[in-house]
């Protein structure tokens, strides 16, 4: 069973629909025991980082997630919460990935927009999360903050500055983009995660 962590940070519809499309059974839960005993764990999230972190802590899930041994995939804010620190709300996060999350700067001269919204290519792909995919494939992003490139980066992209589009360390994975909205490429990534 796949556990989708519900910590009240917005709509989980898209992630649930995407898993249903690839034929995966899942439950949506905030129960620590169910999360611990799941085969794999998805940590989604939309919204603002510091309030999302607070919600995770209020439910006693911050320590639960850090100690998980099965494959864990953070998506967007879920991934940002797995980093050391986020500039959004100046909040200390779980510290799983060895990097910090910083805001993009809009630049009208070069056409850099914030939020970074739409399809961008990802490069330097590594780990089985990107099996059957090539550098330069496109995925869908919606965010204004992003993690700096670090040793844990397994994909990079660029919006004004280069940033880590995906991270991995041990059993923990995270994508800044939304695989659940990234067409066939996204479905492949979700299937790859399920096969880990």
């Amino acid at each position: 069973m796949i556990a989708i962590v519900d910590y009240d940070t917005g709509n989980l519809c898209s992630v649930c629909n995407a898993l249903a499309r690839i034929g995966v059974e899942f439950c949506v839960t905030s129960d620590a025991d169910k999360i611990r005993s799941a085969d794999k764990v998805l940590l989604p999230g939309v919204g603002e980082a510091s309030s999302a972190m607070q919600k995770l802590e209020e439910r006693g899930l911050a320590s639960v997630i850090k100690e998980l041994k099965q494959p864990v995939l953070g998506i967007c804010i879920g991934m940002q919460l797995m980093c050391r620190h986020s500039e959004e709300g100046d909040v200390d996060c779980l510290g799983i990935f060895d990097t910090d999350v910083r805001r993009f700067e809009a630049d009208s001269t070069s056409g850099v927009k914030v939020p970074h919204m739409g399809w961008n290519s990802i490069e330097q792909l590594s780990t089985p999360l990107f099996d059957n995919l090539n550098d330069g494939c496109f995925v869908y992003f919606v965010h204004s903050f992003a993690p700096d490139i670090c040793n844990d980066a397994i994909a990079v992209s660029c919006n004004g500055r280069s940033f880590a589009a995906a991270l991995a360390k041990g059993n923990f994975y995270g994508t800044q983009f939304h695989p659940e909205k990234s067409g066939d490429v996204g479905e492949q990534i979700l299937k790859n995660f399920m096969a880990l």
Binding site: C13, A18, R21, Y140, E180, S182, G183, D184
Partner: peptide
């Protein structure tokens, strides 16, 4: 639509 389409 949300159930069946895999783009935003």
């Amino acid at each position: 639509i949300a159930q069946n389409i895999n783009i935003p």
